[in-house]
Design a protein around this nucleic acid. Structure first.
Lengths: 347, 347
DNA sequence: TTGAAAGCGTTACCAT
DNA sequence: ATGGTAACGCTTTCAA
């Protein structure tokens, strides 16, 4: 077995306390050890290769220097899902700078066992893209450690700090851009899963209100089933819509594929816009115009906020914002153009 | 504070042990609790919202169900580095299936404090792309928990299970492919950092021996400094090489950029091959031919191996391989073609 | 300045 | 079948 504090104490002929004070520096307030004994202790520790047991320290101090990241809709980490990557990059970067470890825990992520948020292992929770129901809301209420949420529309859960892309602003920007190209009949496309999520709802609503603000006709919200049948309508000469704004890049990718399958040309017959502006967008045929949300920056900010909460001894010293909204830009690529029949649609 | 085992015991009017046995099921060998008391205990636990403290359990049991992933050369997690993403995807997938958490710990990753491998927090270590020096070798020797290594040439550290791409086979495949196109003068390009790494050395050697096996002239190993000066040579009419095999996709990207800057056309004047076959390869100009190593599969296998080691009670029951080598394929894209002056070089 | 002892929350052995 | 007790490794208060 590994050498313990006690072993070192015995080897150096002192009490465990002295070792703790000298090696782990946590000497309460007024405890001091004479230099010669300290030297002895350090020597013994070196020889025995003593390392403090992090578990024991944490159990004692109620601090673990570990933060958990929870994804509500966890499919898989991989190149196909750039969101996770950017997010984890931002989170780890912020955590590492301040000496915290990041852990991904299947009990929470896969099993959805939010009650174990405060099982002692973590100083705080970063919760990404949460869905809300009685269970998760109760979990938040019962949590004994700080929680910060990412990518959830603000105001969803009172009292929980929230970091989110500005869906409203993003949708306004997209609609205005498409309108400036001449589009009027624009639909929002979303998948059956996302439409039920809080963010899906929020983004759909943002789209609808943006259309209203732009004085365009009340749009359809198209739920894109995998059978592609909805797209048949876009193959007709007088299609009901000339532009499709999609909930995600992934979904937009499916839409592009379907268009190709049904002989609908993009952007000649219909313009398509994605959301996330991941590297994926450069690979599609044609390259996908997409909303660029600063996932990494959001993640870093959310993490720093969480750590402030964790380390905050005097509670109301400097108050932090409960809601942080991040501006999104629009990366115009080649999947958008003037609607069919417009002046320069063949330019 | 959160309810503890003791609280539940008091509420139910039984001993802590009874609670432990009923709720956490870990009842040693022959401990049983009468059904009525068990019911009482469960009830009390529910009301008090009791959750076992994972820290205390781990301290007691010497098992944490947590595995650490260590990157020796940690820059950053992000879309620019597909290696990390694929790796983490494979690792988490394998870990989660068996109920283990994954943690990234700055002490090890950033500070290189390998001595804290066994600080009690982890059941095992996955070590990726290690460099070897006295410090890391000693860390491995002193470790109290199993270590499995990924992406390090086999045999580097005796006794440590190693998962790696088959550099030899990959290089042989690349050289044979280029030879079949008509190339003879082929160089290996590597950056100043990687050339010092174990994997860099191994891959260079593999390239050299593959060239010998193909009965081609002994090749240059070109260390690609950022000043691009080495590439000037390829702008000449009688360039010394017609094909460049690069250590990584990232490096190949720089090479492509330099070629463009110096007016060298790819693949007309020179063919370029990368390593990793990341999504990045589709975006380069021209798209990059690259060796495809199955990072995700390697990661999954390495993780499963580690967990077997961790869970192995009877040591030599079913022995596992110390070395696992994975075959690599070659993804041919558009950065390779016949050498200049050959029959169909303009086809 | 130093040591002894209690306790963090859990589990396992040994009694009863 | 059940409860007391010690122990996992560490920190901190209290007493000397």
């Amino acid at each position: 077995m590994r050498a313990t504090l006690k072993d070192v104490a015995e080897a150096a002929g002192v009490s465990p306390m002295a070792v703790s004070v000298v090696l782990n520096g946590t000497g309460g307030q007024k405890v001091t050890v004479s230099p010669d004994k300290a030297k002895l202790i350090r020597q013994a520790a070196l020889e025995l290769r003593y390392r403090p047991n992090h578990l024991a320290q944490s159990l004692r101090s109620q601090r673990t220097n570990q933060v958990a990241v929870v994804f509500q809709h966890f499919s898989d980490i991989g190149p196909q899902n750039p969101y996770h990557i950017q997010l984890l990059g931002g989170v780890t970067s912020a955590l590492f700078k301040r000496g915290y470890a990041m852990t991904l825990c299947p009990k929470m992520i896969v099993d959805g066992d939010y009650a174990s948020f405060s099982d002692g292992r973590f100083d705080g929770i970063l919760w990404c893209r949460p869905d809300f129901n009685d269970v998760s809301l109760e979990a938040i209420r019962q949590s004994h450690i700080p929680i910060v949420m990412m990518h959830v529309p603000p105001g969803t859960v009172p009292g929980v700090p929230t970091f989110c892309a500005d869906n409203e602003g993003a949708m306004r920007r997209v609609v205005e851009y498409l309108k400036s190209l001449g589009h009027e009949k624009i639909a929002f496309v979303i998948d059956p899963v996302s439409i039920r999520s809080v963010e899906g709802q929020a983004r759909s609503q943002a789209f609808i209100s943006s259309m209203a603000r732009a004085e365009l006709p009340t749009p359809d919200i198209v739920v894109f089933e995998q059978d592609h049948s909805v797209l048949l309508r876009y193959a007709e000469p007088n299609a009901p819509h000339t532009a499709l704004v999609c909930f995600s890049d992934e979904l937009a990718g499916f839409v592009l594929k379907s268009c190709k399958a049904y002989g609908v040309e993009v952007p000649k017959h219909v313009s398509v816009v994605g959301f996330d502006s991941s590297p994926f967008c450069d690979n599609t045929q044609p390259p996908l115009t997409s909303v660029n949300q600063p996932v990494r920056q959001i993640a870093e900010a959310a993490t720093n906020h969480l750590l402030s909460l964790v380390e905050q001894t005097d509670s109301a010293a400097n108050p932090l914002p409960l809601i942080s909204l991040y501006d999104c830009s629009l990366d115009v690529r080649e999947s958008t153009g003037p609607p069919p029949g417009s002046q320069d649609s063949d330019a």
